[in-house]
Protein backbone atom coordinates (compact mmCIF):
# COMPACT_ATOMS: atom_id res chain seq x y z
CA UNK A 1 0.00 0.00 0.00
CA UNK A 2 2.77 2.36 0.87
CA UNK A 3 4.30 2.04 -2.56
CA UNK A 4 0.90 2.70 -4.06
CA UNK A 5 0.39 5.96 -2.27
CA UNK A 6 3.92 6.90 -2.93
CA UNK A 7 3.30 9.35 -5.67
CA UNK A 8 5.87 11.94 -5.14
CA UNK A 9 7.77 14.17 -7.37
CA UNK A 10 10.93 12.78 -5.92
CA UNK A 11 10.37 9.65 -7.95
CA UNK A 12 11.84 11.45 -10.87
CA UNK A 13 14.90 12.28 -8.79
CA UNK A 14 15.91 8.74 -8.06
CA UNK A 15 16.05 7.58 -11.67
CA UNK A 16 15.85 3.87 -12.21
CA UNK A 17 17.95 2.06 -9.65
CA UNK A 18 15.80 0.35 -7.09
CA UNK A 19 17.90 -0.34 -4.02
CA UNK A 20 18.59 2.69 -1.91
CA UNK A 21 22.14 3.94 -2.03
CA UNK A 22 24.09 4.79 1.08
CA UNK A 23 26.75 7.42 0.70
CA UNK A 24 28.72 6.54 3.76
CA UNK A 25 28.57 4.24 6.74
CA UNK A 26 30.26 4.03 10.10
CA UNK A 27 29.89 2.19 13.38
CA UNK A 28 30.70 3.94 16.64
CA UNK A 29 31.30 2.29 19.94
CA UNK A 30 32.05 -1.26 20.86
CA UNK A 31 31.17 -3.63 18.02
CA UNK A 32 30.17 -6.26 20.56
CA UNK A 33 27.92 -3.91 22.51
CA UNK A 34 24.61 -5.36 23.61
CA UNK A 35 22.49 -2.98 21.59
CA UNK A 36 22.97 -1.38 18.25
CA UNK A 37 21.20 1.82 17.42
CA UNK A 38 20.70 2.14 13.68
CA UNK A 39 20.57 5.70 12.43
CA UNK A 40 19.97 6.82 8.91
CA UNK A 41 20.90 10.40 8.35
CA UNK A 42 21.53 13.01 5.75
CA UNK A 43 24.21 14.62 7.89
CA UNK A 44 27.83 13.82 7.18
CA UNK A 45 29.60 11.57 9.64
CA UNK A 46 32.01 14.31 10.61
CA UNK A 47 29.11 16.66 11.31
CA UNK A 48 27.28 14.31 13.63
CA UNK A 49 30.21 12.44 15.14
CA UNK A 50 30.63 14.68 18.23
CA UNK A 51 27.01 14.13 19.18
CA UNK A 52 27.30 10.36 18.88
CA UNK A 53 30.54 10.25 20.81
CA UNK A 54 29.10 12.36 23.55
CA UNK A 55 26.15 9.98 23.75
CA UNK A 56 28.35 6.90 23.77
CA UNK A 57 30.47 8.15 26.61
CA UNK A 58 27.31 8.01 28.75
CA UNK A 59 26.09 4.74 27.26
CA UNK A 60 29.05 2.39 26.80
CA UNK A 61 26.78 -0.61 26.22
CA UNK A 62 25.41 0.85 23.00
CA UNK A 63 26.91 0.90 19.54
CA UNK A 64 25.70 3.33 16.92
CA UNK A 65 25.42 2.23 13.34
CA UNK A 66 25.35 5.40 11.28
CA UNK A 67 24.34 5.41 7.65
CA UNK A 68 24.57 8.53 5.55
CA UNK A 69 22.21 8.90 2.61
CA UNK A 70 20.75 11.73 0.63
CA UNK A 71 17.33 12.87 1.79
CA UNK A 72 15.62 11.21 -1.15
CA UNK A 73 17.49 7.97 -0.59
CA UNK A 74 16.54 8.15 3.07
CA UNK A 75 12.95 8.56 2.01
CA UNK A 76 13.23 5.64 -0.34
CA UNK A 77 14.79 3.40 2.32
CA UNK A 78 11.97 4.05 4.76
CA UNK A 79 9.05 4.66 2.47
CA UNK A 80 9.52 2.21 -0.34
CA UNK A 81 11.87 -0.42 0.90
CA UNK A 82 10.59 -0.50 4.43
CA UNK A 83 14.08 -0.92 5.85
CA UNK A 84 14.45 -0.91 9.59
CA UNK A 85 16.13 2.09 11.18
CA UNK A 86 15.77 3.31 14.71
CA UNK A 87 16.15 6.99 13.94
CA UNK A 88 15.88 9.05 10.81
CA UNK A 89 17.71 12.36 10.80
CA UNK A 90 17.20 14.63 7.87
CA UNK A 91 17.38 18.21 6.85
CA UNK A 92 14.55 17.64 4.38
CA UNK A 93 11.74 18.83 6.58
CA UNK A 94 9.16 18.19 3.90
CA UNK A 95 10.11 14.55 3.54
CA UNK A 96 10.29 14.07 7.30
CA UNK A 97 6.85 15.61 7.61
CA UNK A 98 5.62 13.37 4.83
CA UNK A 99 6.94 10.29 6.65
CA UNK A 100 5.16 11.33 9.83
CA UNK A 101 2.00 12.42 8.06
CA UNK A 102 1.75 9.13 6.24
CA UNK A 103 2.04 7.16 9.46
CA UNK A 104 5.64 6.01 9.20
CA UNK A 105 6.82 7.73 12.37
CA UNK A 106 6.15 6.79 15.96
CA UNK A 107 4.86 9.23 18.48
CA UNK A 108 7.22 10.04 21.30
CA UNK A 109 6.50 12.06 24.39
CA UNK A 110 8.80 12.66 27.33
CA UNK A 111 9.64 15.40 29.76
CA UNK A 112 12.23 16.50 27.24
CA UNK A 113 9.74 16.87 24.40
CA UNK A 114 7.21 18.64 26.63
CA UNK A 115 9.56 21.58 26.95
CA UNK A 116 10.17 22.08 23.26
CA UNK A 117 9.00 25.30 21.66
CA UNK A 118 5.99 24.85 19.36
CA UNK A 119 7.96 25.29 16.18
CA UNK A 120 10.33 22.48 17.11
CA UNK A 121 7.84 19.64 17.28
CA UNK A 122 5.09 18.38 15.05
CA UNK A 123 2.48 15.92 16.20
CA UNK A 124 4.91 14.39 18.72
CA UNK A 125 6.54 12.69 15.77
CA UNK A 126 8.98 15.10 14.16
CA UNK A 127 11.47 16.91 16.39
CA UNK A 128 13.74 19.73 15.32
CA UNK A 129 17.17 19.88 16.91
CA UNK A 130 19.06 22.40 14.82
CA UNK A 131 18.28 25.67 13.15
CA UNK A 132 20.28 26.08 10.01
CA UNK A 133 19.98 29.22 7.97
CA UNK A 134 20.65 29.28 4.23
CA UNK A 135 23.36 31.78 3.46
CA UNK A 136 25.51 33.27 0.73
CA UNK A 137 29.05 31.95 0.92
CA UNK A 138 31.40 34.34 -0.79
CA UNK A 139 35.00 33.74 -1.81
CA UNK A 140 37.04 36.51 -0.26
CA UNK A 141 39.49 36.38 -3.13
CA UNK A 142 36.89 36.70 -5.87
CA UNK A 143 35.19 39.61 -4.11
CA UNK A 144 38.31 41.66 -3.64
CA UNK A 145 37.39 45.20 -4.47
CA UNK A 146 33.68 44.44 -4.62
CA UNK A 147 31.11 45.43 -2.02
CA UNK A 148 29.69 42.48 -0.09
CA UNK A 149 26.01 41.86 -0.92
CA UNK A 150 23.81 42.11 2.12
CA UNK A 151 20.59 40.97 0.54
CA UNK A 152 19.26 39.34 -2.59
CA UNK A 153 18.70 42.61 -4.41
CA UNK A 154 22.30 43.67 -3.87
CA UNK A 155 23.45 40.24 -4.97
CA UNK A 156 21.42 40.57 -8.18
CA UNK A 157 22.99 43.94 -8.88
CA UNK A 158 26.53 42.70 -8.27
CA UNK A 159 25.99 39.65 -10.44
CA UNK A 160 24.51 41.77 -13.24
CA UNK A 161 27.26 44.34 -13.12
CA UNK A 162 30.15 41.88 -13.05
CA UNK A 163 29.26 39.03 -15.39
CA UNK A 164 32.95 38.60 -16.34
CA UNK A 165 33.82 37.72 -12.75
CA UNK A 166 30.90 35.46 -12.09
CA UNK A 167 30.34 33.56 -15.33
CA UNK A 168 30.69 29.88 -14.51
CA UNK A 169 31.56 30.71 -10.91
CA UNK A 170 28.16 30.82 -9.28
CA UNK A 171 27.05 27.70 -7.49
CA UNK A 172 23.70 26.64 -6.09
CA UNK A 173 21.74 23.49 -5.37
CA UNK A 174 20.42 21.35 -8.16
CA UNK A 175 16.93 21.18 -6.73
CA UNK A 176 16.23 18.11 -8.84
CA UNK A 177 18.86 16.20 -6.88
CA UNK A 178 18.86 17.75 -3.46
CA UNK A 179 15.94 17.65 -1.11
CA UNK A 180 17.35 20.50 0.93
CA UNK A 181 17.93 22.53 -2.21
CA UNK A 182 14.34 21.97 -3.28
CA UNK A 183 13.08 22.93 0.16
CA UNK A 184 15.14 26.12 0.21
CA UNK A 185 14.05 27.02 -3.30
CA UNK A 186 10.35 26.48 -2.64
CA UNK A 187 10.44 28.41 0.60
CA UNK A 188 12.44 31.16 -1.07
CA UNK A 189 9.90 31.39 -3.82
CA UNK A 190 7.05 31.42 -1.31
CA UNK A 191 8.64 34.25 0.62
CA UNK A 192 9.49 36.60 -2.20
CA UNK A 193 9.47 37.14 -5.96
CA UNK A 194 13.10 38.20 -5.75
CA UNK A 195 13.98 34.53 -5.78
CA UNK A 196 12.87 34.12 -9.39
CA UNK A 197 14.70 37.25 -10.52
CA UNK A 198 17.85 36.05 -8.79
CA UNK A 199 17.49 32.59 -10.31
CA UNK A 200 17.16 34.10 -13.76
CA UNK A 201 20.25 36.24 -13.26
CA UNK A 202 22.17 33.20 -12.00
CA UNK A 203 20.84 31.31 -15.01
CA UNK A 204 22.46 33.79 -17.38
CA UNK A 205 25.84 33.20 -15.70
CA UNK A 206 26.13 29.54 -16.58
CA UNK A 207 25.91 28.38 -12.97
CA UNK A 208 27.22 25.17 -11.48
CA UNK A 209 24.63 22.96 -9.84
CA UNK A 210 25.43 20.88 -6.79
CA UNK A 211 23.93 18.01 -4.90
CA UNK A 212 25.43 18.95 -1.59
CA UNK A 213 26.46 21.87 0.55
CA UNK A 214 29.89 20.41 1.32
CA UNK A 215 30.87 20.31 -2.37
CA UNK A 216 29.86 23.92 -2.82
CA UNK A 217 31.95 25.03 0.13
CA UNK A 218 34.91 23.02 -1.12
CA UNK A 219 34.65 24.73 -4.48
CA UNK A 220 34.43 28.16 -2.88
CA UNK A 221 37.52 27.36 -0.85
CA UNK A 222 39.40 26.15 -3.92
CA UNK A 223 38.43 29.33 -5.74
CA UNK A 224 36.45 27.52 -8.38
CA UNK A 225 33.31 29.35 -7.22
CA UNK A 226 33.06 33.03 -6.44
CA UNK A 227 29.77 32.65 -4.65
CA UNK A 228 27.49 29.88 -3.55
CA UNK A 229 23.81 30.64 -2.98
CA UNK A 230 21.64 28.88 -0.40
CA UNK A 231 24.41 27.14 1.44
CA UNK A 232 23.81 25.69 4.89
CA UNK A 233 25.62 28.16 7.11
CA UNK A 234 26.25 25.51 9.76
CA UNK A 235 28.43 23.52 7.37
CA UNK A 236 30.29 26.60 6.22
CA UNK A 237 30.99 27.69 9.80
CA UNK A 238 32.56 24.34 10.58
CA UNK A 239 34.78 24.33 7.55
CA UNK A 240 38.50 24.22 8.31
CA UNK A 241 39.34 26.88 5.76
CA UNK A 242 36.77 29.36 6.92
CA UNK A 243 39.10 32.31 6.39
CA UNK A 244 38.85 31.75 2.62
CA UNK A 245 35.23 32.88 2.51
CA UNK A 246 32.59 35.05 4.14
CA UNK A 247 29.20 33.78 5.19
CA UNK A 248 26.37 36.26 4.75
CA UNK A 249 22.82 35.84 6.03
CA UNK A 250 20.68 37.82 3.60
CA UNK A 251 19.15 40.71 5.50
CA UNK A 252 15.87 40.75 3.51
CA UNK A 253 15.02 37.28 4.73
CA UNK A 254 16.95 34.19 5.60
CA UNK A 255 15.29 30.81 5.32
CA UNK A 256 16.01 28.76 8.43
CA UNK A 257 15.83 25.06 7.95
CA UNK A 258 15.27 22.79 10.90
CA UNK A 259 17.14 19.55 10.98
CA UNK A 260 14.69 17.03 12.31
CA UNK A 261 14.73 13.60 13.80
CA UNK A 262 11.98 11.02 13.99
CA UNK A 263 11.58 7.41 15.08
CA UNK A 264 10.39 5.33 12.13
CA UNK A 265 7.68 2.76 12.75
CA UNK A 266 10.13 0.22 11.42
CA UNK A 267 12.38 0.77 14.45
CA UNK A 268 13.18 -2.44 16.27
CA UNK A 269 14.38 -0.64 19.40
CA UNK A 270 12.04 2.31 19.81
CA UNK A 271 12.97 2.81 23.47
CA UNK A 272 16.66 3.03 22.72
CA UNK A 273 15.81 5.38 19.88
CA UNK A 274 13.67 7.51 22.21
CA UNK A 275 16.55 7.68 24.65
CA UNK A 276 18.94 8.89 21.97
CA UNK A 277 16.34 11.37 20.72
CA UNK A 278 15.91 12.83 24.18
CA UNK A 279 19.67 13.03 24.50
CA UNK A 280 19.93 14.97 21.23
CA UNK A 281 17.14 17.32 22.31
CA UNK A 282 18.73 17.85 25.70
CA UNK A 283 21.92 18.92 23.97
CA UNK A 284 19.96 21.44 21.99
CA UNK A 285 17.17 22.92 24.11
CA UNK A 286 17.26 25.22 25.88
CA UNK A 287 20.67 26.51 24.90
CA UNK A 288 22.22 23.11 25.18
CA UNK A 289 25.83 22.42 24.55
CA UNK A 290 25.30 20.72 21.23
CA UNK A 291 28.45 20.92 19.16
CA UNK A 292 26.16 21.22 16.16
CA UNK A 293 24.61 24.41 17.23
CA UNK A 294 27.32 26.79 18.19
CA UNK A 295 26.16 29.15 15.50
CA UNK A 296 26.82 32.71 16.55
CA UNK A 297 25.37 33.76 13.26
CA UNK A 298 21.76 33.13 14.25
CA UNK A 299 22.15 35.08 17.44
CA UNK A 300 23.58 38.07 15.62
CA UNK A 301 21.01 38.04 12.85
CA UNK A 302 17.93 40.24 12.80
CA UNK A 303 15.35 37.89 14.28
CA UNK A 304 12.56 39.39 12.17
CA UNK A 305 14.40 38.49 8.99
CA UNK A 306 14.63 34.83 9.95
CA UNK A 307 12.04 32.71 8.21
CA UNK A 308 11.89 29.49 10.16
CA UNK A 309 10.27 26.87 7.98
CA UNK A 310 7.12 25.69 9.68
CA UNK A 311 6.71 21.97 10.22
CA UNK A 312 3.31 20.75 9.09
CA UNK A 313 1.23 19.58 6.17
CA UNK A 314 1.91 22.82 4.29
CA UNK A 315 5.25 21.24 3.42
CA UNK A 316 3.42 18.47 1.61
CA UNK A 317 2.21 20.93 -0.99
CA UNK A 318 5.53 21.14 -2.80
CA UNK A 319 5.76 17.36 -2.77
CA UNK A 320 2.60 17.16 -4.83
CA UNK A 321 3.52 15.88 -8.25
CA UNK A 322 1.72 18.70 -10.06
CA UNK A 323 3.33 21.29 -7.90
CA UNK A 324 6.71 19.61 -8.05
CA UNK A 325 6.59 19.27 -11.79
CA UNK A 326 5.55 22.84 -12.40
CA UNK A 327 8.03 24.25 -9.88
CA UNK A 328 10.94 22.32 -11.35
CA UNK A 329 9.85 23.27 -14.83
CA UNK A 330 9.85 26.90 -13.88
CA UNK A 331 13.19 26.57 -12.13
CA UNK A 332 14.71 24.81 -15.10
CA UNK A 333 13.52 27.44 -17.48
CA UNK A 334 15.10 30.08 -15.26
CA UNK A 335 18.41 28.43 -14.55
CA UNK A 336 19.12 26.46 -17.71
CA UNK A 337 19.30 29.05 -20.40
CA UNK A 338 21.21 27.24 -23.07
Amino acid sequence: MRSLIFSLGLMCLSTLSNAFEAEDHAVFGDEDAGQVLRIISTADIAFFKPMIQSYLSDHPDVAVDYTVASSSELMRALYEEDLSFDLAISSAMDLQTKLANDGLAQRHSSSQTQNLPDWAVWNEMVFAFTQEPAAFVISNKAFEGLPLPENRQQLINILRQNPEIFRGRVGTYDIRQSGSGYLFATQDARASDTYWRLTEVIGTLDPKLYCCTADMIDDVVSGELAIAYNVLASYAEQSAQSDAFTIILPSDFAIVMLRTVLIPTSSEKPELAAGFLDFVLSQTFPRGTSPLLQSTMLDDANQNALHRIRLGPGLLVYLDQFKNRSFIAEWESAILQD
Binding site: G103, N123, E124, R190, P313, G314, V317
Partner: peptide, 18 residues
Protein backbone atom coordinates in the same frame (compact mmCIF):
# COMPACT_ATOMS: atom_id res chain seq x y z
CA UNK B 1 -3.39 22.18 -10.62
CA UNK B 2 -1.29 24.63 -8.71
CA UNK B 3 -1.82 23.33 -5.18
CA UNK B 4 -2.01 26.38 -2.91
CA UNK B 5 0.34 26.25 0.07
CA UNK B 6 -2.42 27.42 2.36
CA UNK B 7 -4.73 24.57 1.31
CA UNK B 8 -2.82 22.15 3.51
CA UNK B 9 -1.13 24.54 5.93
CA UNK B 10 -4.51 25.88 7.08
CA UNK B 11 -5.43 22.40 8.34
CA UNK B 12 -2.58 22.52 10.79
CA UNK B 13 -2.93 26.05 12.01
CA UNK B 14 -4.16 25.45 15.55
CA UNK B 15 -3.26 21.89 16.43
CA UNK B 16 -0.82 19.54 14.79
CA UNK B 17 -2.89 17.52 12.38
CA UNK B 18 -2.00 14.98 9.77
Amino acid sequence: IDLPYSALSMLDSVTDER
